[in-house]
Protein backbone atom coordinates (compact mmCIF):
# COMPACT_ATOMS: atom_id res chain seq x y z
CA UNK A 1 0.00 0.00 0.00
CA UNK A 2 1.68 3.21 -1.11
CA UNK A 3 1.37 6.47 0.78
CA UNK A 4 2.08 10.00 -0.45
CA UNK A 5 5.38 11.28 0.84
CA UNK A 6 4.85 13.53 3.87
CA UNK A 7 7.33 15.78 5.64
CA UNK A 8 7.49 17.84 8.84
CA UNK A 9 10.38 19.49 10.60
CA UNK A 10 11.59 18.93 14.14
CA UNK A 11 14.80 20.23 15.68
CA UNK A 12 15.51 21.93 12.35
CA UNK A 13 15.60 18.58 10.54
CA UNK A 14 13.24 17.13 7.97
CA UNK A 15 11.25 14.13 9.16
CA UNK A 16 9.82 12.13 6.28
CA UNK A 17 7.44 9.22 5.92
CA UNK A 18 5.64 7.57 3.03
CA UNK A 19 6.78 6.99 -0.54
CA UNK A 20 8.92 9.60 -2.24
CA UNK A 21 9.39 7.64 -5.43
CA UNK A 22 7.62 4.91 -7.34
CA UNK A 23 9.29 2.18 -9.33
CA UNK A 24 8.22 1.63 -12.93
CA UNK A 25 10.13 -0.71 -15.24
CA UNK A 26 12.11 0.58 -18.23
CA UNK A 27 10.66 -0.24 -21.64
CA UNK A 28 12.67 -0.71 -24.86
CA UNK A 29 12.20 1.73 -27.77
CA UNK A 30 12.34 -0.13 -31.08
CA UNK A 31 12.46 0.91 -34.74
CA UNK A 32 9.31 -0.09 -36.65
CA UNK A 33 11.04 0.76 -39.95
CA UNK A 34 14.05 -1.47 -39.40
CA UNK A 35 13.19 -4.88 -38.03
CA UNK A 36 12.26 -3.57 -34.58
CA UNK A 37 15.91 -3.04 -33.74
CA UNK A 38 16.66 -1.47 -30.37
CA UNK A 39 16.93 2.35 -30.47
CA UNK A 40 16.75 3.27 -26.79
CA UNK A 41 14.85 2.85 -23.56
CA UNK A 42 12.24 4.72 -21.50
CA UNK A 43 13.35 6.00 -18.10
CA UNK A 44 10.22 6.37 -15.92
CA UNK A 45 10.67 8.41 -12.79
CA UNK A 46 8.18 9.73 -10.25
CA UNK A 47 9.77 11.62 -7.40
CA UNK A 48 8.62 13.97 -4.65
CA UNK A 49 10.87 16.90 -3.77
CA UNK A 50 11.20 18.51 -0.35
CA UNK A 51 11.23 22.30 -0.72
CA UNK A 52 11.69 25.09 1.84
CA UNK A 53 9.84 28.42 1.51
CA UNK A 54 12.36 29.93 3.92
CA UNK A 55 11.61 33.57 4.63
CA UNK A 56 8.68 33.56 2.22
CA UNK A 57 6.77 30.96 4.26
CA UNK A 58 4.74 33.69 5.95
CA UNK A 59 3.50 34.87 2.57
CA UNK A 60 2.23 31.45 1.52
CA UNK A 61 0.80 30.66 4.98
CA UNK A 62 -1.08 33.96 4.98
CA UNK A 63 -2.81 33.28 1.69
CA UNK A 64 -4.67 30.37 3.27
CA UNK A 65 -5.70 32.77 6.05
CA UNK A 66 -7.12 35.32 3.63
CA UNK A 67 -4.23 37.79 3.82
CA UNK A 68 -1.88 39.21 1.21
CA UNK A 69 1.49 40.03 2.73
CA UNK A 70 4.05 42.35 1.15
CA UNK A 71 7.43 43.74 2.15
CA UNK A 72 8.98 47.19 2.33
CA UNK A 73 12.54 48.43 2.67
CA UNK A 74 12.71 50.48 5.87
CA UNK A 75 16.48 50.96 5.85
CA UNK A 76 16.92 54.76 6.04
CA UNK A 77 20.40 54.48 4.53
CA UNK A 78 19.17 52.65 1.43
CA UNK A 79 18.70 54.52 -1.86
CA UNK A 80 15.61 52.37 -2.34
CA UNK A 81 14.25 53.24 1.13
CA UNK A 82 10.47 52.92 1.13
CA UNK A 83 10.32 50.59 -1.87
CA UNK A 84 7.31 48.29 -1.54
CA UNK A 85 7.61 44.81 -3.00
CA UNK A 86 4.79 42.64 -4.24
CA UNK A 87 5.90 39.96 -5.09
CA UNK A 88 7.10 39.71 -1.53
CA UNK A 89 10.90 39.92 -1.34
CA UNK A 90 12.69 38.81 1.79
CA UNK A 91 15.55 41.24 1.22
CA UNK A 92 15.58 44.70 -0.35
CA UNK A 93 16.75 44.55 -3.94
CA UNK A 94 19.15 47.46 -3.34
CA UNK A 95 20.65 47.16 0.16
CA UNK A 96 19.98 43.45 0.81
CA UNK A 97 18.76 44.24 4.34
CA UNK A 98 15.72 42.26 5.50
CA UNK A 99 12.52 44.02 4.56
CA UNK A 100 9.60 44.75 6.87
CA UNK A 101 6.64 42.42 6.33
CA UNK A 102 3.18 44.02 6.30
CA UNK A 103 -0.37 43.07 5.45
CA UNK A 104 -1.49 44.77 2.23
CA UNK A 105 -4.83 42.99 1.85
CA UNK A 106 -6.87 46.17 2.25
CA UNK A 107 -4.60 48.09 -0.12
CA UNK A 108 -5.08 45.34 -2.69
CA UNK A 109 -8.84 45.38 -2.26
CA UNK A 110 -8.94 49.14 -2.75
CA UNK A 111 -6.43 49.70 -5.53
CA UNK A 112 -5.63 46.54 -7.49
CA UNK A 113 -5.99 46.78 -11.24
CA UNK A 114 -4.78 44.77 -14.19
CA UNK A 115 -1.51 46.03 -15.69
CA UNK A 116 -1.48 43.41 -18.44
CA UNK A 117 -2.89 39.96 -19.01
CA UNK A 118 -2.90 36.93 -21.24
CA UNK A 119 -5.48 34.30 -21.94
CA UNK A 120 -3.46 31.14 -22.47
CA UNK A 121 -5.15 28.24 -24.24
CA UNK A 122 -2.43 25.71 -23.44
CA UNK A 123 -0.67 24.46 -20.37
CA UNK A 124 2.22 22.23 -19.45
CA UNK A 125 2.13 18.84 -17.78
CA UNK A 126 1.08 18.92 -14.11
CA UNK A 127 -1.04 22.03 -14.57
CA UNK A 128 -4.08 22.00 -12.28
CA UNK A 129 -5.69 25.30 -13.34
CA UNK A 130 -8.61 25.23 -15.75
CA UNK A 131 -7.74 26.25 -19.30
CA UNK A 132 -7.81 28.76 -20.79
CA UNK A 133 -5.73 30.25 -18.00
CA UNK A 134 -6.29 33.99 -17.55
CA UNK A 135 -2.89 35.25 -16.47
CA UNK A 136 -2.99 38.73 -15.01
CA UNK A 137 -0.34 41.08 -13.72
CA UNK A 138 -1.72 43.24 -10.95
CA UNK A 139 -0.53 46.74 -10.03
CA UNK A 140 -1.31 48.52 -6.76
CA UNK A 141 -1.10 52.12 -5.59
CA UNK A 142 2.18 52.76 -3.81
CA UNK A 143 3.66 49.38 -4.74
CA UNK A 144 6.76 49.41 -6.94
CA UNK A 145 6.39 46.02 -8.58
CA UNK A 146 3.63 44.15 -10.39
CA UNK A 147 2.32 40.83 -9.12
CA UNK A 148 1.63 37.91 -11.45
CA UNK A 149 -1.44 35.83 -10.73
CA UNK A 150 -4.63 34.55 -12.40
CA UNK A 151 -8.19 35.72 -12.80
CA UNK A 152 -10.85 33.22 -11.73
CA UNK A 153 -13.97 34.95 -13.04
CA UNK A 154 -14.66 37.10 -16.10
CA UNK A 155 -12.45 38.29 -18.92
CA UNK A 156 -9.41 40.42 -18.17
CA UNK A 157 -8.82 43.91 -19.55
CA UNK A 158 -5.95 46.30 -18.95
CA UNK A 159 -6.98 48.77 -16.24
CA UNK A 160 -9.77 46.51 -14.88
CA UNK A 161 -10.28 46.82 -11.11
CA UNK A 162 -9.90 43.46 -9.42
CA UNK A 163 -9.96 42.20 -5.85
CA UNK A 164 -8.06 39.30 -4.29
CA UNK A 165 -9.66 36.04 -3.29
CA UNK A 166 -8.03 33.35 -1.16
CA UNK A 167 -8.38 29.60 -0.95
CA UNK A 168 -9.03 29.44 2.76
CA UNK A 169 -10.76 26.05 2.62
CA UNK A 170 -8.23 23.26 2.07
CA UNK A 171 -5.47 25.63 0.92
CA UNK A 172 -2.76 24.20 -1.32
CA UNK A 173 -0.03 26.23 0.42
CA UNK A 174 1.08 27.46 -3.02
CA UNK A 175 0.69 30.63 -5.04
CA UNK A 176 -2.52 29.10 -6.43
CA UNK A 177 -4.23 29.97 -3.11
CA UNK A 178 -4.32 33.58 -4.37
CA UNK A 179 -6.56 34.53 -7.25
CA UNK A 180 -8.51 37.58 -8.40
CA UNK A 181 -12.02 38.46 -9.50
CA UNK A 182 -13.52 41.66 -10.95
CA UNK A 183 -14.41 44.25 -8.33
CA UNK A 184 -18.07 43.81 -7.42
CA UNK A 185 -18.14 40.02 -7.77
CA UNK A 186 -20.52 38.41 -5.26
CA UNK A 187 -19.13 35.92 -2.73
CA UNK A 188 -21.49 33.19 -3.93
CA UNK A 189 -19.87 33.34 -7.38
CA UNK A 190 -16.38 32.50 -6.10
CA UNK A 191 -14.76 29.16 -6.94
CA UNK A 192 -15.16 26.43 -4.37
CA UNK A 193 -12.93 26.90 -1.35
CA UNK A 194 -12.22 30.59 -2.08
CA UNK A 195 -13.34 33.62 -0.07
CA UNK A 196 -12.60 37.34 -0.04
Amino acid sequence: MSMFGQVYTKNNQYKIKGDFHHLTPNQPIRNADDGWKLMGVTNPRDMTYIHSYGGEAIFFESLGQGKLMATRCDNPDCEGHGTVYQPFRIHCMDCLRKCTVFDMTDLAKKSAKIHTFMVCERSGAFNILNTPIKFINVEFEGVDTILMSYLSIGNPEIGMRVVPIFQTLNPTSTILDLSWVPDGTAEKELPEGFSF
Binding site: S123, N127, L129, N137
Partner: peptide, 29 residues
Protein backbone atom coordinates in the same frame (compact mmCIF):
# COMPACT_ATOMS: atom_id res chain seq x y z
CA UNK B 1 3.55 18.98 -22.62
CA UNK B 2 6.20 17.65 -20.27
CA UNK B 3 8.71 19.72 -22.21
CA UNK B 4 6.56 22.77 -21.52
CA UNK B 5 6.56 21.82 -17.86
CA UNK B 6 10.35 21.50 -17.82
CA UNK B 7 10.76 24.87 -19.55
CA UNK B 8 8.40 26.46 -17.02
CA UNK B 9 10.82 25.36 -14.31
CA UNK B 10 13.03 28.21 -15.54
CA UNK B 11 10.47 30.60 -14.06
CA UNK B 12 10.26 31.18 -10.31
CA UNK B 13 9.18 27.83 -8.88
CA UNK B 14 7.04 29.29 -6.11
CA UNK B 15 5.59 32.38 -7.75
CA UNK B 16 5.20 31.55 -11.44
CA UNK B 17 5.66 27.89 -12.43
CA UNK B 18 2.56 26.60 -10.61
CA UNK B 19 0.53 28.99 -12.77
CA UNK B 20 -0.14 26.62 -15.64
CA UNK B 21 3.41 25.28 -15.98
CA UNK B 22 3.53 27.05 -19.33
CA UNK B 23 6.41 29.47 -19.91
CA UNK B 24 4.73 30.93 -22.97
CA UNK B 25 2.12 32.40 -20.63
CA UNK B 26 4.70 34.21 -18.51
CA UNK B 27 6.16 35.82 -21.60
CA UNK B 28 2.79 36.36 -23.26
CA UNK B 29 1.63 38.93 -20.70
Amino acid sequence: DEGNFLISCAADKDWESPLGHIYTGYYAV
